[in-house]
Structures are given as C-alpha cells and as structure tokens.
C-alpha cells in the first residue's frame, strides 16, 4: 500500500475525529429520566419527583423524604392519639423541637397578617365540617359562640418556646404543618444531594432545579373550570402554594361553603376564588396564602407586597387575576405550550 492508495494515518485521524464528533453530538444524559412516587399522606395525595440521580438512589431518597413527611403527619395531625391531639386536650404542655417550630411560625404569621391567618380557628373548622357530606351551614349563634374561643393572642409560649399554654384555645396546624412536612422532605432531598425535584403535597409544591431539557413546569389550576389550567409557570427554586375555594367545599341550597374560615367572622372567607403564593419555604407559602385568601384581594396584595420573599397571584371571585410586583420574576410564565 502506498501513501497514494490508502493513508492509514489519515484514516485513524478521521475515525478519531468522527468519534469525537459523536461524543460531542451526544452529551451523556443517562440520568435524564425523572423518577416519581406517590402516596396518600396528610389527607392528600403526595407525589415526589426527582431527577438526576440513579434509580436506586432515587428510590432511597424519595422513601426517606416520605418517611420524614409521615413523621410530621404522625405528630401534627388533628386525629386522635397524635402529640397535637394530646396537647390540645391537655390545654398545653411541653413541645418537641418540630412542634415548637411550626407553632412559632404559625403565631408569627398570625401576627404578621393581623390575625387573618390564625392557628386557633380549629373550633370553627370542626363546626363547619366541610369534609362531610352536604349539610346545612351552622347556626349564626353557634358561630358567634365559638368565635369567642378563637384568637391566637391568648396562646402563650413558655421560656425558650419549649412549652406552651393554650388558655382554652385549640390549635389546628393544618396547612402550615403540611408546608413544614414539605420543607422537611426538601431538606432530606437537598442533604442527599438531589439537585432536581418537585415535592407535591396535594398541589402545595416545592420546586428545585429543572427537568433537564427545560425548567419544571407548574400549572396553576383554574378556580372555576375543573380540570383546566389558569396559567403555566416555570417557578424558580422555592415553594408554591395555592389556596382556593374550589378544592374542599360543600354545596347547600345552591351556595358553596369552602374550607377557609375567616377567624374574625367565623364564615368562609369571600372575595377571592384562588391565591397562589411563592415563598422560600412551603410553611411560609401556606400561611401567607391562607392569610391573603382571608384578607381579600386588595389587602391581601398589600400584605404580599409587605412580606419579604413572598409573591403571589390573586384570582378574584369575578375571575380577574392580579399579581404582586415580583410574581413574574418568581414564577415566570412558560414561554411556549
């Protein structure tokens, strides 16, 4: 073989170049697939989706995150036997670290929202029984009666916030505990080094990282058209929580009674059909969303603007959407559908 006929060097170079081209053309992405698991927890459907770790690791981490959420539920649900149930029954007592955290946060948001959000609204929630089958709304005098037993100001922490005196109040940590559970799951995933995930507890989310080829996309449910989306956003890292009157409610004689009770009036809050809040933690996002819902569109937006780190979009009962100034930055609309 002469150099004129076959040129081994050139062929080798050529093949090397081809292989390089190949490697370049096919950026390794073996970890691209997302892994997700779903479980019933905290009275809702919880889905954890992770991406960017091997399947075995993904399973381990997701399991650990679920366990963490389950532990919070075991502690802070209202059902019989939980530490919260016992605390309410005893009218106070010593607090675990996590319980102290959640109660302190609840009181903080109650103060910040001027009592719009109030963890002591429990007796009214029990009176309204929104989760049960349709029934007549409670009598006005019963509501007035119970209202005197609502108000976070009566609750007093002991030294170092390690114990609490309820002074006749009953605590419902509800959404805030759910938010806290999400935050604990998030911590588990972050500590394990998972860079991309969504923790979704019945529509209360924490989003981190991306889906690989594009950001995670989150639909915001349409409050009046079941099964449709009002908007699609690509949130930055953080929590996103929506409070609406369309998820848990009952209808009696043509009127809808939903589950977000205004602690001042004792009736389901009116004026807003849905509010979506972003915040650094799900616990904060949950409390703020509830507060905004109760405050109504105008005051709610003012509250959002005054709350650092929180942004929101309010959809009023008439269907108008108003966003706080930083909402589009925290959750930009998806570029294309």
């Amino acid at each position: 073989m002469t150099s004129k006929n076959v040129k081994p060097k050139k062929i080798i170079l050529f093949i090397a170049a081809l292989i390089l081209l190949l490697l370049w053309a096919r950026k390794p992405e073996q970890l691209g697939a997302a892994y997700s698991e779903t479980e019933f927890l905290m009275d809702t459907l919880v889905t954890i989706t992770v991406r960017g770790v091997g399947e075995e690791d993904a399973k381990t981490y997701v399991r650990a995150a679920f366990d963490e959420m389950g532990a919070v539920d075991e502690e802070m649900a209202r059902r019989e036997g939980t530490p919260l149930y016992k605390l309410n029954k005893a009218g106070g007592g010593a607090l675990s670290q996590s319980m102290a955290t959640v109660i302190a946060a609840s009181i903080h948001w109650a103060e910040a929202s001027g009592g719009a959000f109030d963890p002591t609204v429990a007796p009214l929630i029990d009176l309204w029984r929104v989760k049960d089958e349709p029934h007549p709304p409670p009598a006005a005098e019963d509501i007035a009666d119970l209202l005197t037993g609502v108000g976070y100001l009566a609750v007093s922490f002991g030294a170092d916030e390690k114990s609490i005196e309820l002074n006749g109040r009953v605590l419902d940590l509800g959404g805030v505990a759910k938010g806290y559970a999400i935050d604990r799951a998030v911590k588990v995933l972050k500590d394990a080094g998972v860079g991309n995930f969504i923790v979704n507890a019945g529509g209360d989310l924490f989003v981190k990282g991306d889906k690989g080829e594009r950001p995670w996309r989150v639909g915001i449910a349409h409050p009046r058209k079941p099964g449709e989306l009002f908007a699609i956003v690509e949130p930055r890292e953080g929590a996103m929580v929506t409070s609406g009157d369309y998820e848990r409610y009952f209808i009696w004689e043509g009127k809808r009674y939903h589950h977000i009770i205004d602690p001042k009036s004792g009736y389901p809050a009116e004026g807003i059909s849905s509010v979506t809040v972003t915040a650094p933690t799900a616990m904060a996002a949950d409390a703020v969303a509830t507060a905004v819902f109760i405050l109504g569109a105008e005051q709610g937006l003012a509250f959002l603007e005054g709350t650092q780190g929180a942004e929101g979009m309010v959809i009023s009962s008439t269907g108008e959407a108003v966003k706080s100034s930083g909402f589009d930055h925290a959750a930009p609309e998806a570029s294309s559908r």
Partner: peptide, 24 residues
C-alpha cells in the same frame, strides 16, 4: 470492523432518546 465498532460504540454512548444516533 469499523462499521461494527462505530455502531457498537454509538449504541453504548448514553443518549437522551434511543432513536437519536448519528449512525456513522
């Protein structure tokens, strides 16, 4: 030999989608 090697190497490189190959 080259064709087989290229095909094998390509199929072993992870790809975002199984159909996405250069097919050298």
């Amino acid at each position: 030999a080259l064709a087989a090697t290229l095909q094998a190497v390509e199929s072993l490189i992870p790809s975002p989608a199984p159909w996405l190959r250069l097919g050298l």
